[in-house]
Simulated assay, not measured.
Amino acid sequence: MSSFIATAEPGVPTSPTDAATVTNNGWFPDIDLNELRDAMRLDGTVTHDRLRLAAIDAIASINDELQAWQTGQRAAGHADLASVPAPELGGVSTHVLRYRRAVYNLARADLTEQYRTYDATKTGSQHADELEATICESRRNVRWALNDLRGIARSTIELI
């Protein structure tokens, strides 16, 4: 009798250097897929093509949501997101950091939903529950990043 046990995590696939950056609309920053992969700790189970598609969709969604805010900033004379007055951390505008955080977390949430297992075993069900928490936390991080970027309170509390 023989068995095979794979213990190593899948390696991160290499991508062509010209495809490692998703070019944005010129006002919002471009997204480096290698930085996204590192920041969100995505291993080789996420192919480069799937990561690129998830990033493009996340960029489109975030850009759409920020369109009214962007219009106001352009009217105020700001040429791009980095030129909107904001504190800098590590030499980067906090607006740019928050924009990236929103895009990265939305891409991660979408990818995690796609890779969620449908295993009917008890272990598979527990794993799906763990992934559900990751998805919810990622979507919460998107909301917080966008609210912080626009200067909106993070939560609204209503009397029920």
Rank of each mutant, 00 (worst) to 15 (best):
L66C: 06
D43F: 11
P85W: 13
A86G: 09
L89R: 15
G77Q: 06
L51E: 01
V84F: 10
V92Q: 13
H78L: 02
E88S: 14
R52T: 06
D80C: 12
A79S: 14
D64C: 01
T45S: 13
A58I: 05
V96Y: 01
D80N: 15
S83E: 04
T94G: 00
I56D: 01
D80H: 12
A75E: 09
T71G: 09
G72W: 14
A58K: 05
G90E: 12
T45R: 15
T45I: 14
L66G: 06
D64K: 13
V46C: 06
R50N: 09
A68P: 02
S93L: 02
S61W: 02
D57S: 15
I59L: 14
A55H: 06
D43L: 11
Q67V: 08
A82Q: 03
W69L: 11
A75I: 02
A60Q: 09
L53Y: 00
A54E: 02
V92D: 03
R41F: 12
W69M: 06
W69H: 10
V84I: 12
H95N: 14
S83R: 08
Q70R: 15
I56F: 00
A55P: 05
I62M: 05
D64I: 02
Q67F: 09
I59H: 01
S93C: 04
R50M: 05
I59C: 07
A68Y: 08
L81I: 05
A55R: 06
P87W: 08
A76D: 10
A54W: 04
N63Y: 04
S61A: 15
D80E: 10
L81M: 03
Q73V: 02
V96N: 01
R41W: 10
P87A: 12
A58R: 06
T94S: 02
V96E: 05
Q67L: 12
G91E: 10
H95F: 08
A60P: 00
G44D: 09
L42S: 03
H78E: 01
L42Q: 11
T47S: 15
I56N: 03
A79L: 13
T94R: 04
N63C: 12
A55Q: 07
G44K: 10
V92E: 11
T94M: 05
S83F: 01
D57W: 07
V92I: 15
A55E: 03
R52E: 05
V46Q: 04
W69C: 06
I56P: 00
